[in-house]
């Protein structure tokens, strides 16, 4: 082993300093953790710790504030974007984000989500879509795929009875209030990098007061999908991505930037 390898100048990755040095409660391999991590990396890289205020939802990420070393508020179920709206309206110069799961954002909080985007609130909404309710133990989410099993759709989601999986990101992209809408994932290193770049861009747009930025992160739920983390990411590729296709749904035109 080379003696100089561990010098600071050769450090290429270390835990972001905004990510508090405790083990997160998320299950092994969970995309929530990955997304928290890159969010912290962006906060570090943009040096915006003192400007960021985050809103945690109800769901698995209900105690996101235990891990992010920033000022945060915990919202009632579904209301994170309304809470974020309140913060942003009185502190327009700060950078505000809500971090919401599919149940929070796309079921109980659908109205708040759509109207926040429709008002073009100048905030970032990070939307973790793993097609299932994690915290309550694997029930059907609004984004649960057709025929996908959950504890409340034990024979698979019958869309005639349970409705169709909802593409919130496509929906909000149609609203004039949104500025940047993208669907990303964190199941490979390349995708993690892309998601991180998207978060970074969104904060930069927020500084320019451009409207709502909305980033869906198609994610896994190894525990409730009942598979290993590695298999869950394979399942995600085979089942989630064909329906929730990755990429930008709305990007600023060139002249705007």
């Amino acid at each position: 082993m080379n003696d100089t390898l561990h010098l600071a100048e050769n450090l290429v990755y270390k835990r972001p300093k905004t990510l508090i040095n405790v083990a997160m409660h998320y299950c092994p391999g969970c995309g929530h953790s990955t997304t928290h991590k890159i969010l912290c990396e962006v906060i570090d890289e943009l040096n915006i710790q003192s400007e960021v205020i985050g809103v945690a939802p109800v769901g698995c990420s209900v105690i996101a504030y235990d891990y992010l070393n920033i000022d945060m508020q915990e919202a009632a179920h579904g209301r994170a974007s309304a809470v974020a709206t309140g913060i942003k309206r009185v502190l327009p110069e700060k950078l505000v984000f809500s971090y919401q799961g599919d149940g929070d954002l796309a079921a109980i909080g659908t109205a708040e989500t759509l109207h926040t985007c429709n008002r073009g609130e100048n905030i970032l909404i990070i939307f973790i879509n793993n097609a299932i309710y994690g915290m309550t133990g694997g029930q059907m989410a609004p984004t649960t795929l057709e025929n996908m099993k959950s504890t409340t759709t034990p024979f698979g989601r019958n869309v005639r009875k349970m409705g169709y999986p909802i593409k919130m990101t496509d929906l909000v992209a149609t609203l004039p209030g949104t500025y940047y809408v993208t669907r990303q994932s964190v199941h490979t290193p390349a995708n993690v990098r892309k998601t991180k770049a998207a978060i970074k861009k969104a904060f930069e747009y927020q500084r320019l007061d451009r409207g709502t930025c909305f980033i869906e992160v198609v994610s896994n739920c190894p525990s409730n999908w009942k598979m290993t983390p590695v298999d869950s990411n394979k399942w995600l590729v085979e089942n989630m991505l064909p329906f929730y296709s990755l990429g930008d749904l709305k990007v600023p035109s060139k002249e705007e930037n």
Binding site: N10, L11, Y13, S33, T34, K37, V192
Partner: peptide, 13 residues
């Protein structure tokens, strides 16, 4: 990059 828990520090020379 893929590590959800930021458990890995990496050096390169």
């Amino acid at each position: 990059t893929i590590c959800p828990d930021a458990a890995i520090t990496v050096y390169r020379e």
